[in-house]
């Protein structure tokens, strides 16, 4: 399941809802991304996340389907926020549940690496010099590339 929203999410509630009633699940891996207050050695205030409605959902669904084809997963959830966010705010949630830990952990890492390079979101950070578009990092491409086969 994927969701794109401005509202915050409750990690505990999402975890409980995703695994409820499925006792085949033996392990759950989850990743929560937070807004940092420093970027490139510079203090950052609020940020605004722009996205491409329609394509965002389509790409997240494709990435999720790819993970489910590669690992034996019982349940998956991707929640990505957009709009205005403050340092410390939750920005993204990925949950993967499987019978065994290895599939859950690997699929979770795969999803977070891939959505960073494929999901059409753009961050604009408020800095003391005014708003600044965050540039993509080559390391993110490398992190995603390790899953290519």
């Amino acid at each position: 399941m994927i969701r794109v929203q401005t509202e915050d999410f409750d990690v505990g509630a999402e975890l409980k809802a995703l695994t409820a009633g499925n006792t085949a699940i033996g392990g759950v891996a989850l990743f929560v991304g937070l807004v940092r207050d420093m970027a490139g050695g510079q203090a950052v205030g609020a940020m605004t996340l722009e996205h491409y409605p329609g394509m965002t959902e389509r790409q997240l669904e494709k990435i999720e389907a790819e993970a489910r084809a590669r690992w034996p997963l019982d349940a998956t959830l991707i929640v990505h926020r957009h709009g205005r966010l403050e340092p410390g705010d939750q920005i993204v949630l990925v949950i993967c549940a499987s019978a065994h830990r290895e599939a859950a952990l690997e699929a979770c890492a795969f999803l977070i690496d891939w959505l960073k390079t494929k999901a059409p979101f753009w961050k604009s950070e408020a800095t003391p010099e005014g708003p600044r578009w965050v540039e993509a990092r080559a390391e993110d491409d490398h992190a995603a590339a390790r899953w290519q086969r």
Partner: peptide
Amino acid sequence: VAFFPPVTGGSA
């Protein structure tokens, strides 16, 4: 047809 910079979603 959409044009945009390299994406920067997710988190650290």
